[in-house]
Nucleic acid binder design. Structure first.
Lengths: 212, 212
DNA sequence: GAGCATACCTACTCGTGCGTAAGGTTACGC
DNA sequence: GCGTAACCTTACGCACGAGTAGGTATGCTC
């Protein structure tokens, strides 16, 4: 009757999630390369070969992390921003969901994201995710423009959307580095920058470089 | 009179620059970890111990790259945005200088920057550089606000500046990935997003979250 | 309660790449 | 023309960490 358990045998699905949790923690703490499979295994309370048996090589493990966290985030956003709302309402809800997510997964997601940018093997995966975000935002802007009977070149919209997504990611980094900051307040600030800027553009205002 | 030279002996200062050039190329092509000191040495047309003799370990070498490129960029920006101009003019010139720099050093700077974000040892170095940029932008906004007799909490300004810097970095990434894009045009687009947004804020406009 | 599949372990191999020791070679002062 | 100092090389030691071989225990099925 050993009361020193916690070493229970667990079904695969459960252990896989524990491993992914540990991997996210360690990857975010150390970075992809500095993280060792041994440390991840230890953090998960398991031995290394189990990780290989279930999740495959280190790269595959990282991709699995990226995938899980990315999917969760996308679902959080998509679930919040219903497509039949007006543009500003959609933007606001999307931002709030996004910063809420980052606030709740601070060390987890934010650093994972920071990691993936640098390492070539994952840049593609990450770029695809971001491209979907940019597309959503660009679509939102386009929709709002058409509603006013105006039209803008695709590239321009894409670039504006890119800038907005970039600013948002940047504030997410800021939020991840300031544990005391409030996600909701951060979202409001972002909305001020993004919408008042984009709002002016939508009303047809244009800033041009001065002569010379 | 061997005419097969290029293997001249060169003074230290010159070789150091060649090594840094090579290091920037290789680091940007491969990423920090995947880059090997051997490849850097080969790319510089020199052998490995020379690199160690002049620039030290791999980390020190990377820091040296970061430092040189960072300084060049800061100088390019600071030289363009004279502090006695009106805020919009300063912002515009700063942006133009920035995108011009990135356009001219595409694979060099942009990827170096992307690299430094992920690797813990350099995150600090990078954060300091960015902090200086944010400070400059925040100071610019503050100056413009005071000129209109208005006042805003420091944190708010900092966050807005952070968002603007983030959006700009994001477009710099976009520019680095689109070799055909025009830096000047990209700067104009950024100015539209940044200034029309920030401009509204300066005039006292504020967006608030709807009830519920 | 025999058999089988699945969870799990300890203890190794082996490649890769950082960093260095010890020794050539070219320029330059005297 | 000869030392000396800086430039530059080839060739190695060594640690670290990814991935694996082979074996043990536990629970489930009939």
């Amino acid at each position: 009757m050993s009361s020193a358990p916690t070493f229970k045998r667990l079904p695969r699905a459960v252990r896989e999630q524990q491993m992914l949790d540990a991997a996210v923690r360690v990857f975010s703490r150390r970075g992809f390369h500095a993280a060792s499979m041994d440390e991840i295994a230890e953090d998960a309370g398991i031995s290394k070969p189990m990780v290989y048996a279930y999740l495959g090589t280190k790269e595959e493990l990282f991709v699995a992390c990226l995938h899980r966290e990315g999917t969760r985030m996308m679902e959080a956003i998509a679930g919040a921003a219903a497509p039949d709302l007006p543009a500003d309402e959609r933007l606001w809800r999307g931002l709030r969901a996004f910063f809420g997510f980052v606030g709740a997964h601070r060390d987890g997601w934010a650093v994972l994201y920071r990691q993936a940018r640098g390492e070539q093997p994952f840049a593609g995966e990450l770029a695809a995710m971001r491209a979907r975000l940019v597309e959503v935002v660009a679509g939102m802007l386009d929709h709002a423009l058409r509603a006013e009977g105006r039209e803008v070149a695709g590239t321009d919209l894409e670039v504006v959307a890119y800038a907005l997504v970039g600013a948002t990611e940047s504030l997410a980094d800021w939020l991840a580095d300031h544990p005391d900051a409030d996600p909701e307040k951060t979202a409001t600030r972002m909305m001020n920058v993004a919408w008042l800027g984009a709002g002016q553009l939508l009303r047809g205002a244009t800033w041009r470089p001065p002569a010379s």
